[in-house]
């Protein structure tokens, strides 16, 4: 890991009690839910991490608890560094403070996380689904969402499924 990155990770560990893991030169820093906004603004203002490359989430059900990890990937263009912050979020009432105030790029990515995982972001200016239709129930990228959509129609069950398929009349 880069020297500059090591120093920044140490700062995060001291100020926020963050743990970190390293994987092939990348630093993954685990920050708790209450401190994430502070950590993001510290990185943006003092350490020149001006670019929020991506904001996604991962579902580790049922192996791990807390179930979701919200991932913030920050990039510093001036120092050529990349850092990943992970926020473990519980599955029962997943609410995370929004990063839209700090990074405008977080707007649509948080909408995508809401749509696909059901994690709500407090203070988001436009909290609605972005990929699925508005009246869709369920959050598709959770691990307990069914994988396929319909039963494949082979020759032996062609007629049974044909009765159930929705056809357009006109």
């Amino acid at each position: 890991m880069d020297n500059k990155l090591e120093k920044i990770v140490q700062v995060l560990q001291e100020r926020f009690g963050a743990t970190f893991e390293e994987f092939r030169g990348e630093a993954h820093v685990f920050v708790s839910l209450e401190k994430i906004i502070e950590a993001l603004s510290l990185l943006r203002d003092e350490h020149e991490f001006a670019l929020l490359s991506t904001l996604t989430a991962v579902d580790y059900w049922p192996q791990e608890s807390p179930r979701f990890h919200v991932i913030y990937q920050l990039t510093s263009l001036t120092q050529n560094l990349s850092l990943q912050l992970r926020v473990p979020v519980d599955g029962s009432q997943p609410r995370v403070p929004t990063a839209t105030g700090l990074f405008q790029a977080a707007n649509w990515r948080e909408r995508e996380v809401l749509d696909m995982f059901g994690i709500e972001f407090e203070g988001h200016p436009d909290p609605r689904r972005i990929m699925m239709p508005e009246d869709w129930t369920g959050h598709p990228l959770r691990k307990d969402y069914p994988l396929g959509y319909e039963e494949p129609q082979f020759t032996f069950n062609f007629d049974e499924i044909d009765l159930r398929k929705p056809y357009a009349k006109e």
């Binding site: 990929m131 598709p140 959509y149 319909e150 398929k165 056809y167 357009a168």
Partner: peptide, 20 residues
């Protein structure tokens, strides 16, 4: 025609669900 290889939540399973 039938959704093709994409049997999932995001792709319409055949366009005949909405147009004849």
């Amino acid at each position: 025609s039938c959704g093709g290889v994409f049997n999932n939540y995001a792709i319409l399973q055949g366009v005949d669900e909405i147009v004849p």
